[in-house]
Amino acid sequence: MIEAPETILVRTHRIACDGSGEGVPAALGHPRVWLEIDESGLVECGYCDRRFVLVGGPADNGSTNKG
């Protein structure tokens, strides 16, 4: 498995991603998409490949917290 470019820990099952952050303004990101974390405890954005991991969920292994 290829490592996701960025892992962001979140506290809700439903999140939005627009590719902004880390010095990238929303205008240079991608269209805002809503993502739903399932029973695996994570979801990846289809545009930018960011991985969103639910805090305390099955995929939370103490990875870097960026969000």
Score class of each variant (00 low, 15 high):
H13Q: 14
A27S: 15
L28E: 15
I8D: 13
K66M: 14
G41C: 05
C17H: 03
L35K: 07
D18R: 07
T64V: 15
P5I: 13
V24A: 06
A26S: 15
L28V: 01
G57A: 11
G41H: 01
D18L: 03
A16F: 04
W34M: 07
V53N: 04
D18K: 06
S20Q: 06
A27H: 06
P25S: 10
Y47G: 08
P5N: 15
L42V: 02
A4E: 09
V33P: 09
N61P: 00
Y47D: 11
R11S: 11
G21F: 02
G29E: 03
N65A: 09
A27Q: 13
D38C: 02
G23C: 03
E44H: 10
V53C: 04
A26H: 08
S63M: 11
H30M: 01
G19C: 10
G29A: 10
D18P: 12
G21P: 08
R14M: 05
R11T: 15
G56Y: 03
S63K: 01
A4W: 00
L35F: 02
I37N: 03
G41M: 01
L9A: 07
G57R: 01
E6V: 14
R50E: 01
R32N: 02
D38P: 06
T64M: 11
H13L: 12
A59M: 02
S20V: 06
C45F: 05
T12I: 10
G19P: 13
L9R: 14
M1W: 04
A16Q: 14
D60L: 03
E6K: 14
G67H: 05
K66R: 15
G57F: 03
S20I: 10
P25W: 00
L54S: 05
I2E: 15
N61M: 07
G67L: 09
A27N: 12
C45I: 09
K66E: 12
P5T: 14
G56I: 10
P31T: 07
S20R: 02
C17I: 07
G19I: 03
R14F: 11
N65C: 10
G21I: 03
H13A: 12
M1L: 13
E3S: 14
T64F: 08
C45W: 00
I2S: 15
H30E: 02
K66Q: 14
Y47C: 08
D60C: 12
